[in-house]
């Protein structure tokens, strides 16, 4: 069979599968039952004003743990494939010199970007944000650092220590929730829920967000660092 015909057939089949979804979609005048429960009881259950963060961290915390594990596996496979041994490294590499504007600007901007990432990460239960967003912003700060200095070396020991510690702490909070309270895995009621709208409120959620953000940020930075270092291979 002709390959182009098969491709067209598959794409058409995908379109046919997706079309009823589009046809039956009415733009939604009311929420689903689950969404209704979350929007009505979210604050009294978790104490967080950002409902998306309360779904990610508390209601669906186990799924988040699984997703962090997938990310960790992907990062491990990348570092296994692209690691450069000392003998394979080229001695001198010719790169384009970085202009003074970029190097000065990166020295000023990288701390500010990391600060913004930390702000988003800590305020995840109040305003839009949380662990994943803060981690992604911290990783883009690392990217700017690499663009300003292509030969920059990340300290792998520190990165691995931060990553493993925050991963273990994430699971530990979940297990403490099972052992101490009767709330189940990743229970939010580890600490007092407090008044909604304050920085220290929503129980264990800020703590979980911080560990999640550190883990995601270091993992993405690590992936970037491996890609940059693989440029030095013969």
């Amino acid at each position: 069979m002709d390959k182009k015909f098969m491709v067209a057939l598959l794409v058409a089949a995908m379109a046919v599968i997706l079309f009823p979804l589009f046809q039956s979609f009415e733009g939604g005048t009311q929420l689903s039952e689950l969404g209704q429960y979350y929007t009505q009881n979210g604050v009294s259950d978790t104490g967080a004003t950002n409902l998306v963060a309360s779904v990610v961290v508390t209601y669906r915390g186990l799924d988040t743990l699984g997703e962090v594990t997938i990310l960790f596996l992907a990062a491990s496979i990348i570092s296994f494939f692209l690691s450069v041994s000392k003998d394979d490294r080229i001695e001198n590499r010719t790169v384009m010199s970085v202009t003074e504007i970029l190097s000065t600007a990166s020295q000023t901007l990288v701390p500010i970007i990391v600060l913004v990432g930390a702000y988003i990460l800590v305020n995840g239960h109040l305003t839009p944000g949380g662990g994943f967003q803060g981690g992604a912003i911290i990783a883009s700060g690392t990217l700017l650092m690499f663009l300003a200095n292509p030969n920059h070396k990340l300290n792998h020991t520190i990165i691995h220590v931060i990553e493993s510690t925050s991963g273990i702490a994430f699971v530990a909070i979940g297990v403490i929730g099972v052992l101490m309270m009767d709330g189940g895995f990743l229970s939010n009621k580890l600490f007092d829920l407090g008044t909604p709208g304050e920085v220290i409120s929503a129980g264990a959620m800020p703590l979980i967000n911080i560990f999640l953000g550190l883990k995601v940020g270091t993992e993405l930075s690590n992936v970037l660092g491996i890609f940059v270092e693989s440029q030095n291979e013969k």
Binding site: K86, R89, N92, R93, T94, V95, M96, S97, N151
Partner: peptide
């Protein structure tokens, strides 16, 4: 030719 520079990659 100053815009190209050589960097040492070995630590």
């Amino acid at each position: 030719k100053a815009h190209l520079k050589t960097v040492k990659t070995k630590a």
